[in-house]
Computed example of a mutant assay.
Amino acid sequence: MFGFTNLPCSLYDLPAVETWLAEQERKGKRFVGFSGAQDAKFEDGEPRNEVYRLEPSDGNRRPDPEQEELFRAAGWEYRAASFHDDLWVFRACRPDPVPIHTDPETQAIACRQLQKRLVRRTVPYVLLLAVLGALNVWLWGRQTAGLAELVERPYPLLNTAYWLVYVLFFGGIAVADLLPLGRLVRSLKAGIPMEHTVRRRCHRRYWRWAFLAVVAVYLGAGLCTLRQYEYAALSAGDCAGKYVTMETLGMDNGGYGPEGHYQRSVLGEIWNVREGEPVREDTEYGYTTRWPVFTRLYRLRFSAMASPLLTELRQNADAMADGVQLTDTGLDESWYARTDDGQSILLQDGGAVLYMRVSGEAEDLRDHLQDFAAVLQG
């Protein structure tokens, strides 16, 4: 009966694979061949003490008849070729086989050729993955309005995370193949004969566990993003403490109390609060509704995002690009702007960012910095 077993290490860790194949024979598993780059095929049999050797191939599926006859005369029979036909596997067919290699430097030449072949095949693939990943990030950046939109809808982060995981995993597999082969080439060039019985270095197994761990984190982040997203309307009571009221600014709300909506995502919380009698305005795109007081308050999970967010809002918000920076406010950063139809203020303290736009006659917003500080510090 046949069965498949995962390689416990990189296929290109030649001494480790030779040792592992011999161990399987002692367990009664007779080597038949490889299945893909990570599995070996065995058939059940009697436990035996067998000796295996992995030899860099010339790129063909098996040695030509003349080569095969030379190996057999030295006491080695051909068993199988590895994935991509990079390696030939030989098994001793008599108790006293002649060593395939006696000169480490000659063996280094064959292993160096194998190393070059592996680099030519894997590096372009890894570079392609990196380019595709970078292109994905670039396209996401082009399609996303900015950091403010990302805080509101952080789903593009999952797609970017997917590409990063993909590139890192397959790049790691390539490195795990090249490292042991590089060590072997260096030792052979130094004249040190290759050991054929070694303790296995389970790079492949470690990378699999690492990949599973990263996938678990990725899926967990996705579930966290989906579960934590929330959008809800705000009542007057919900708005309390999330903005500076018209009454505080010496204005009359005309009986139009605060309302708005609340958003929450994995990156933070956003309150949008408006107060006063709405005014319908005609624009080139149609009608729009404008409130005398509009406040947007961000509470970010990562404080490092606050300063870039403030910079983005200052560039995009009405009149704030021409605003002046306030000093000695006790806050991390403060900006103020006045126009013909009102005032705007943009503040940041820790992970909280507040933008407020006021239309009509109101007290100077700079006179209420303590009130704004109380809102930011929540």
Rank of each mutant, 00 (worst) to 15 (best):
Y355F: 15
V17C: 11
G59E: 13
G276C: 05
L7D: 06
T248H: 03
E195V: 00
E275F: 02
G182D: 06
K189S: 08
G276I: 03
Q263H: 14
Q24E: 14
N316W: 09
D340T: 03
C224S: 11
L226N: 05
M305P: 00
G286V: 03
V185I: 07
A352Y: 02
G222A: 02
A236C: 00
F4K: 15
E50S: 15
R280Q: 14
L150R: 03
C9D: 12
L135R: 07
T122Q: 15
G350E: 09
L21R: 08
L127W: 07
Y206K: 06
E269F: 05
N316E: 15
W20C: 03
A130L: 11
E43N: 01
D13Q: 09
A92I: 06
C224F: 14
R186G: 06
V293S: 15
P104R: 12
Q107F: 02
Y287V: 10
Q113A: 01
F34S: 12
T283Y: 04
V214I: 07
R205D: 04
H261D: 15
E230F: 01
A221H: 09
L129E: 00
E281H: 05
R112D: 13
L168T: 15
Y155R: 10
E77S: 15
G237A: 14
Q325K: 12
R183V: 04
S265V: 01
